[in-house]
Simulated scan of single mutants.
Amino acid sequence: MICQKTKLCIWLLGINLFISTFTFGGGYVVVPMIRKYFVSRKKLFSEDELVDMAAIAQSSPGAIAINLSTLAGFRVAGMTGAVISCIAAVIPSLVILVFISMFYVAFAANPLISAVLKGMQAGVAALIVDFVVDMCSMVIKERSLLLTLMIPTAFLANFILEINVAIILAVCCFLCIVRVWVNERRQKKWGNY
């Protein structure tokens, strides 16, 4: 009889192979898929934990999709789950790239392949918009004026003023650190009374 952890590892292998095979467009597209299978269906961790993992995956070096899959696997089944999830997230892309590189000349000139790739771009855009809407709604639920105003301010700073994204991220991180520090000071102050 197969133990529970072995079943979970087999499930991690299968689901990460599936997610990696059918998500085109990068790491942000993986988030809704992980939400669907890990949070909504299996209830292996919460929505808040997913947001935390997505933030860590985004700020860590490497591909967001692989980082997030690895973190989800680690959260579910420890180091074994992390290794299985990481390998499963890499295999489909590796196989597809090897196949495409073997027939690159034929693929590059084929109008049908070009049309399929254009269609995939539209699907990726829709998934990214869905992710942004979900993230914004979670920020608004915090009921923090600072966090809520950061969303349009960051957008305007990049889109209108063309400020580098790294600078925007650094300023937002600094403001959030100051916010946490101020809140902790307030709690300590009120805790003494």
Rank of each mutant, 00 (worst) to 15 (best):
G14D: 07
K189R: 01
V124I: 09
I168M: 07
K118L: 09
M1Y: 07
R75V: 03
F103S: 02
P61N: 13
N158I: 15
F99I: 12
I100S: 08
C176T: 12
G81A: 12
G73C: 09
Y37H: 14
N192P: 09
G78T: 09
V180E: 08
A126V: 14
V182L: 12
E142C: 08
A57M: 11
I66N: 13
F107I: 03
I56D: 13
D134N: 11
A108W: 04
F107C: 12
L169A: 02
F103H: 05
I10M: 14
G73P: 09
D134A: 13
K42A: 12
N183G: 01
L169N: 03
M150P: 01
V98I: 11
F99C: 12
D134Y: 13
V124H: 01
A77E: 15
I151E: 12
A54V: 01
P111F: 05
I168F: 05
Q58K: 05
L117N: 05
G78H: 11
G26F: 08
F159E: 05
I10V: 15
Q187G: 03
T153D: 02
K189A: 02
I84A: 10
K189Y: 00
A157T: 04
T148C: 10
N67R: 01
S93M: 11
V182Q: 08
V95S: 07
W11K: 09
I87R: 05
I167M: 10
L146P: 01
A77Q: 15
A108H: 08
E142I: 04
V180N: 02
L71G: 08
L175P: 00
L8N: 11
K5G: 06
E184G: 06
I100A: 13
R75H: 09
S69R: 08
V178G: 01
G25W: 02
F159M: 08
I128Q: 05
Q4P: 04
V95G: 04
A57V: 07
F18Q: 15
I177A: 11
P92K: 05
V76I: 15
A170W: 02
I15P: 06
E184Q: 12
Y104S: 06
G14Q: 12
V39N: 05
K36G: 05
F107P: 00
V105N: 02
T148M: 13
Q58P: 00
Q121R: 08
I34G: 06
N67V: 05
R41H: 11
A106G: 00
T21F: 11
S101L: 06
P61L: 14
D130F: 13
C9D: 07
T153W: 01
L112H: 10
I56Y: 11
A54D: 00
I2V: 14
V31W: 02
V31M: 06
G27E: 03
A154L: 05
I167S: 07
R41C: 01
T153A: 10
W11Q: 07
F174C: 07
M102Q: 06
L71Y: 15
D130E: 15
P92M: 04
L12W: 03
C136S: 12
E184T: 06
L17R: 08
V83N: 06
F24A: 05
T23F: 03
I2Y: 14
S46E: 03
E49K: 13
K36L: 12
V133T: 04
A125K: 03
V182P: 01
N67S: 07
S40V: 11
G191P: 11
M102V: 00
V83W: 09
V30C: 07
